[in-house]
Amino acid sequence: MNTQKIISGFFIIMAMTLNFGFFYGDIDKFSHHSPYELFATIVVNLIATILKLGDKTQLGSVLLATSLVADIQLISAAIVWGIALYVMHDVTNSAQIIVSLSGGALMANIVSVILFIGDTLKSKR
């Protein structure tokens, strides 16, 4: 058992599950998509990204790249939401954009988890 592996595995998978939780639901209904869940997704994603830093291998680099993609999409979603709510004062039209951005991030997170599992299976220790 490897503590490092547990911690990074926890955050990587948690990033995906939270992301899915936020994404799941009707695309244009805000009641299906909690802002708290988006916040948690962003935080867990950021932590997962930092845990992936410092691995110089080929796989480590790709893992880092997927995380960066997810971060960018999720933060964009949060920014869109913030601008729509507080600057434009109209959120009804931006629900699709926010949810689809998080959907993109979900794809990246799924790739990340697959790579992580593949690496774990390959490892002999």
């Binding site: 930092i50 845990l51 830093l53």
Partner: peptide, 11 residues
């Protein structure tokens, strides 16, 4: 590598 823990703590 050195900044990993500080960044996680910060977040």
């Amino acid at each position: 590598r050195r900044m990993r823990t500080p960044l996680i703590v910060l977040i």
